[in-house]
Amino acid sequence: MSTDPSRQGPADPARRWHDMGGDLAGPVPGEEHDFALWEKRVDALVILSGLKGVFTVDGLRRVLEDMGPEAFETMTYYERWVAALNQNHLERGTYTVAELGAKMEEVRARGATYGEAADAT
């Protein structure tokens, strides 16, 4: 969580958690990682959803913000993105919750690793 004392305790409802400019916080972390294939695909699906007119980056951001600070601290960047991608598609009616549930079952049944589960198509 934020290390800014003014941002501890009960949240100020007027200021949303993601709006963090000016907070005090610890040192800038130095680690970097190269993106995994599934992360790049999430990114690609978000960009393509915009290009195809399904939803805009604003819709993505809105859901990310509504996920709250706990998601920011406990999920990785593209985990949050894939959740927000899904939320926007559900809202726009690309597929139903039931269709997603069935498809996730099908994917999971293909194997125990990303490589096995993603290579079925």
């Binding site: 007027a14 200021r15 949303r16 709006d19 400019g21 000016g22 939803f55 805009t56 604003d58 819709g59 951001r61 809105r62 809202e91 726009r92």
Partner: peptide, 28 residues
């Protein structure tokens, strides 16, 4: 509009746009 700039005074550096209002786009 970031919270830390609300109520603050500055000067227009350049004019851009027009762009779609993100406050409407965000909700489809």
């Amino acid at each position: 509009t970031p919270f830390y700039l609300r109520g603050k005074t500055g000067a227009v550096e350049r004019v851009l746009g027009p762009f779609g209002n993100p406050e409407q786009l965000a909700y489809g």
